[in-house]
């Protein structure tokens, strides 16, 4: 195993940034490219995290299976979400997806037999691939970097493909596309399943890195963080999402160097995210590289 030549602090930060890049780029696929006002993405992330954690702690599944199952299960819930909400328009779609996020957190809290409720799931094992266990944080970082690179590459290929252009056409002129005989609902299913899959594997990476998850990691404030990153980076810009993941996650680290007590750092971080979100909405709603407006 390689020597840790970057500090544990930086390694930890980079792991989170890698996980968020997958989460945010996959959200951009639905929110930015397809124009679906999806506020429930964090719930799919949570479903991935719990699926992977439960399969490994309860049923002793190998990591690779748990990891893929996290993606598939989250993708399936993405499908269910579109199935349930396909009749709703505009802010009602946004609200239904937000409601979905509330409900998922509530089920995680209340299905105690399955999820241990607020106590969460401890002792989630580190991943092992082909007999090699990823023990050190540095090797975990390499693993996250590879998964993030592959995920972003796949999503990049998707949005640049003819299929990706049809997704953007759905966003820009859904009725026009229907006139041309395209089934736009089917396109939304596909976008949401793909987006959900990547949110799910990001959840799996999150769970196995922390080795402990509880419902508090998937609250409303997390939804705000993910939305902030997508909007700051810009809708329908993968480059923007990646850059914004670095910028937004690094800014609150300043608080750490001000020697503030931890009771202030936690809320302080949320305040910074919320301020960035409100400011960008008011003064630069297209973010860094956004090509379209949020409507």
């Amino acid at each position: 195993m390689p020597v840790e030549f970057i500090s544990p602090y930086i390694t930890n930060l980079l792991i989170f940034i890698g996980i968020y890049i997958i989460l945010v780029v996959s959200l951009n696929l639905t929110l930015g490219y397809t124009g679906m006002l999806n506020l429930g993405h964090v719930a799919l992330f949570a479903i991935g995290a719990y699926t992977s954690a439960l399969l490994m702690t309860r049923l002793d599944f190998p990591f690779v299976i748990a990891f893929l199952a996290a993606g598939i299960f989250a993708g399936f819930f993405g499908y269910v979400l579109v199935l349930a909400t396909k009749k709703l328009k505009g802010d009602y779609f946004a609200l239904a997806t937000l409601g979905f996020a509330f409900i998922v957190v509530n089920l995680l809290l209340n299905l105690q037999g399955l999820t241990h409720g607020p106590l969460g799931i401890p002792g989630i094992p580190k991943p092992s691939l082909f007999g090699l266990t990823i023990q050190s944080n540095f090797s975990y970082l390499i693993f996250v970097a590879i998964v993030a690179f592959v995920s972003v590459f796949i999503i990049y290929k998707i949005v640049k493909s003819p299929f990706g252009r049809i997704l953007e056409a759905t966003r820009d002129d859904e009725i026009g596309l229907r006139v041309l005989g395209k089934n736009t609902v089917k396109l939304k299913y596909k976008a949401m399943i793909i987006s959900g899959f990547f949110a799910g594997i990001a959840g799996s990476l999150f769970a196995h890195y922390l080795s402990f998850i509880d419902p508090s990691s998937f609250h409303l404030s997390e939804i705000i963080l993910v939305l902030t990153i997508v909007i700051v980076g810009g809708l329908a810009s993968i480059k923007g999402s990646i850059l914004a993941s670095f910028v937004i996650l690094l800014i609150p680290e300043v608080l750490r160097f001000l020697a503030l007590p931890s009771s202030i750092i936690g809320p302080g971080r949320q305040i910074i995210y919320a301020l960035i979100l409100i400011t960008i909405l008011m003064y630069k709603p297209r973010g860094l590289f956004g090509r379209v407006d949020l409507e």
Partner: peptide, 26 residues
């Protein structure tokens, strides 16, 4: 005034909610 959509306003309102809640906590 900048013709922001209802969803932008909804997102902004969640931002205010999180902002003020955390100010109260501090």
């Amino acid at each position: 005034n900048k013709k922001a959509s209802n969803v932008i306003l909804l997102i902004a309102s969640i931002g205010i909610l999180i902002l003020v809640e955390n100010l109260i906590q501090i």
